[in-house]
Amino acid sequence: MTTTATGHVAAEARPEAAEVADGSKLAWAARDTAALVKRNLLHYTRVPQLLVFTFVQPIMFVLLFRYVFGGTIQIPNVAYVDYLMPGIFGQIVVFGATSTAIGLAEDMGSGIIERFRSLPMVRLSVLAGRTGADFVRNTGVVVVMLIVGVAVGFRPKGGAIAIAAACLLVLAFAFALSWIMALVGLKVANAEAAQAVAFPMLFPLTFASAAFVPVNSMPGWLQVFAAHQPVTVVVNAARGLMLGPEVAADLERYGVFNTSTTGYVLQSVAWIVAILAVFVPLAVRQFNRS
C-alpha cells in the first residue's frame, strides 16, 4: 500500500504531464507503436499455428508450383522457377494481409482495445502497431522465401540492389494492403468474419494475376482484369527488377509483360500511394468511431 500516490497529489500532478508539445507527441506515437509492434510479434512466439501459417504455407506454394504445376507452364526464354518466385512473394504478402484483419478483429472482440482506449497512449498506435508488426513479419517471410527460392533453383540476375528494391516494393504493397485489411478487421464482428470477408477479396487478386502464369495465357475477358489489377502490377515490377533488364525485355517482347519494368514500378508506386491515401484515413475514422 505504501507505493500508491495519494489521490490528490496524483490528481494534480498527472494532467499537467499530459500537456505535451507536438514534437513529443510524435515521439510518443513512435514509442507506443513500437511497444505494440513488439506485443503483436510476441504472439508469433506463443502461438505455433501462427508461425506455421506464416512460413510453411508459402513454402508449400513454392514446392507445389515449382514441382507439380511448373512442368506444364512454359514461358519463353525464362526458367519457370525464375518466373514463379517473384509471384510467390506477391502471393505470400497478399494472403498474409488477412492476418491484419484477423488480429484487429480479435483484439476488438477481446476487450483489450477498450483498455488501450482508456490509456494515455496515442490511439492511432493501435493500428500502426498492427500494420507495423505485419510489415516486420512480412520482411522475415520474404527473407526466408528468398533462401527457399535459391534452394529450389531460383537464380535472379538483376543484381543485389534491384533485388532489394523489388523486395521493398513488395513489402510496401503489403503494408498498403494491411491498411485495407485493418478497415475490414475493424468493421467485422470477429476473426472468423474477418477471414470470411478477406479471402474472397484476396483470392481472385492473387490467382487472376501474373503471379503464377502469364496474363497473356488467360482468356481475353480475364486479361482485362488480370493485366491491370495491382497484384499483377507489383509482381511484374518485382519480376522485372529481380530477373534483370535482359529477361524483362524478353518478357515484354513475348507479350508476357505489357509494359517495361519501369512502367510497372511506377504503376506499383501509384497503387501503393493511392491505397494508403484512401485506406489510412478510412481505417483511422472507423477506429475512432467504433
Binding site: 494532467p15 506485443r39 477481446s110 482508456s118
Partner: peptide
C-alpha cells in the same frame, strides 16, 4: 480534454482486458 482525463484514470473491466498470449509481467 480526453487525453488529460486518460492520464488520471484506471479502468478494469468485466471482460478482463488483458492479452491472453502474454505473460502477466509482459
Amino acid at each position: 480534454h480526453p487525453e488529460r482525463v486518460r492520464a488520471s484514470i484506471g479502468l478494469a473491466g468485466q471482460y478482463a482486458a488483458v492479452d491472453e498470449q502474454l505473460t502477466g509481467r509482459e
